[in-house]
Design a protein around this nucleic acid. Structure first.
Lengths: 231, 231, 231, 231
DNA sequence: GATGAATGAGAATTCATTCAT
DNA sequence: AATGAATGAATTCTCATTCAT
């Protein structure tokens, strides 16, 4: 039922994803996506709570009645964003985890994936991090823990890494998974909270994020204690 | 203005902090605290947004009009909780940071402080972690910097640790601070999300949390990579 | 303008009044009837107020835009049902009233007409009884007088019966008309309210309704007082 | 739980039922009644469906938020009217039914009770007759059939009358109860639908209604057939 | 201090109706 | 004829906040 959309393309999104050949495309589906994109933008700006349905509609340039044509209510918009975007994100993480490269490279790739996602679609990431993760809506069994699945992903990854001799076996995968996710999340959080400090130049920006990713993984793998980098 | 209350006593809170019959003074102050405690409970249960003023009043066992006698409005309750509790928490962190013990011990103490806080006052921690940070995004500059101050605390701590030769100097304190806070936060998050898994016995529980704290700090200091623990 | 349709055929409605393959003419007319039949079903189930245009369309198996092709608006559907069905019903009553049989027989026939209508097309009757009368209060004069016309019908009938010496002359026809209509209406109401009690077997069912009709007329003619039946 | 209020006093309601001595009475209860009275007026005028909560508030001269202070929603207002008024009415009917007078007198009293109710509080009666009786809200089991209870009342009454030899025993009480209620209801209905025809003078008015009540009971007891009145 | 009645701005949601295709 | 996307007026209901008692 969820229609996973490649959530974080490495390339900038093209102006119009419209498939050529369909001159104007089906009237409706476009509007549905329009609403989702607008919702992400508004949720990021004002929070789910602070976002009025009419704000979303205005952002999308449509009558707000139409929102209810496509979604049962405001909550369902959030759920849809989750289903179609977060699940896609999880899949991307899993792919990287299975790509056969050395552990460090995989972790840097994942960190870079997330940081790039933020660079290219900050609204999208803000909503995932701030709204979906914390929303009571997702803390309930059934929809169950958006986060839970990400934890599982990393637990698997780290269990395999232990077996492969790439990780210490005296630390439980559950703990290291927690640690790694926490590191990534807080990086995002700190980015969101002090956007001003970012480099203006795009090339610098990429470098900035990549450095951040590398450094984070380095701590995770080798620790901060004196001598850690010498190993 | 903030009246820091020792936020995380090492001892269990006594059943009733108000000795009946004793100092009958400051009755209003009692009600004020009653409201704050009730608010923490309700905020933890339903979120700040989902909490109605009347819910808080009902929880406190008072008429809701009285809430406005002590607080200008609902928001001020949250701000007050923040000011009186979070600042107290920051102070506790700073004290530990300055207690002259080896870095590892200090970090374990801080981690244990937080985990114990959660063990003893889960509502309190939930509100601080989930609500204050969330609201930070939309709050006025001033409150916004709730997290900022904690970052600063750790940056200071880690800068001194580098000077003292206890930490690698090739990792910016800003990054390691981010990393450490993130680790702690996510630990809390994961605790909140799977309360069921906790040991029932209290002695075991303490041990459980302490192990978690130790392991987290171990990763932070020595990393997860194979051989990390041998240093 | 109204196109009276024999509202209460004595025979069961054939499964499909539209012979497939036969006269393919007037397809639009078919849809129009489809909508009316669907509307009756939905109005009976949910009331005019509770019925959404889209419910009617769904019941009819068409797009709801099409409803507006055949009817100006929702209200016109109800008016149409009234005009085409109620007027037909009035005509049927008048026919029976003029069929030259003894008063008692005519009244029993009319009562049986109504009860049979309910037996064969309960939805139809529910809408006429509950919805048309209810809406009468708020409709424009013209429709308002739905009931008025039925009253007139019976007043005429009873005036003639007085002239013919079949009825007491010390009771105003207006009163006895009121009485008789009320009796019939409440019979329907009570049927609607306790459908469960009905006999399952169809032969028994007919008998049940006929008995009800006879008994009602008997009261109307001879009263409930002791000795009434001996006359 | 329902607080039966004498529903149909034989005397005109005094201007203010306020108990003397309580200079201004409890602030709240007055408003609650005010809302109920306003609701009856508005429901009678526009129907439950056509009545907006804001109309009721305006009619009562209060802020409409207050309506929700006393009632969960619009529907509950209707239910309350039913519980507090209809049940009182049922009790009044039962009292008359048990007053030991001859059957005819009791029936005339009941008919007069209803007709007087309409004379004195037409809005009240309109709501009971048109809205409560027909409302889907009351057709559901649980709240169950407002009407059902009235039927039961009359079935009891007529069964006893048969035992006492005041009624024919060859007509089932269920049928005669149906008949009598139907007669009364339709009388009300016809009154509501042609208010214009009423006598302007109050003395005449009383006589008019009394005559109507007598005539209706006469039909019910002795029938309309020729010779019925001579018995 | 304490109560809870009273207020009303604000937001969500519904659904009849229009209209482009 | 047929479809269902699009519109937005209309209404209900919520709840923070004020205020009379």
């Amino acid at each position: 039922m969820p229609r996973p959309v490649s959530p974080v393309p490495e390339v900038e999104p093209t102006a119009k994803p419209t498939k050529p050949g369909a001159t104007r495309v089906r009237r409706g589906q476009d509007k549905r996506d329009l609403i989702l994109q607008a919702a992400i933008k508004v949720f990021a700006r004002a929070g789910v709570h602070g976002a009025r349905v009419s704000d979303i509609a205005k952002e999308a340039g449509i009558a707000y009645g139409l929102v209810y044509h496509y979604f049962k209510n405001k909550d369902e918009i959030l759920v849809t964003i989750f289903e179609e975007q977060w699940l896609g994100f999880l899949a991307a993480v899993r792919d990287i985890g299975n790509n056969g490269q050395p552990l460090r490279d995989r972790l840097v790739s994942i960190a870079a994936l997330i940081l790039n996602a933020y660079r290219l679609r900050p609204d999208w990431v803000k909503v995932l991090v701030f709204e979906i993760q914390r929303s009571a809506r997702f803390a309930q069994p059934g929809q169950v823990q958006a986060m839970r699945r990400l934890f599982d992903e990393f637990e698997d990854l780290f269990e395999r890494a232990q077996v492969d001799g790439e990780m210490r076996t005296d630390i439980r995968p559950a703990v290291s998974a927690t640690m790694f996710i926490g590191a990534l999340e807080i990086v995002i959080t700190s980015l969101v909270l002090e956007t001003a400090a970012l480099p203006a130049d795009e090339t610098e920006e990429r470098a900035y994020y990549l450095a951040f990713a590398n450094e984070t993984v380095e701590i995770f793998l080798n620790g901060c204690a004196r001598g850690g980098s010498t190993r």
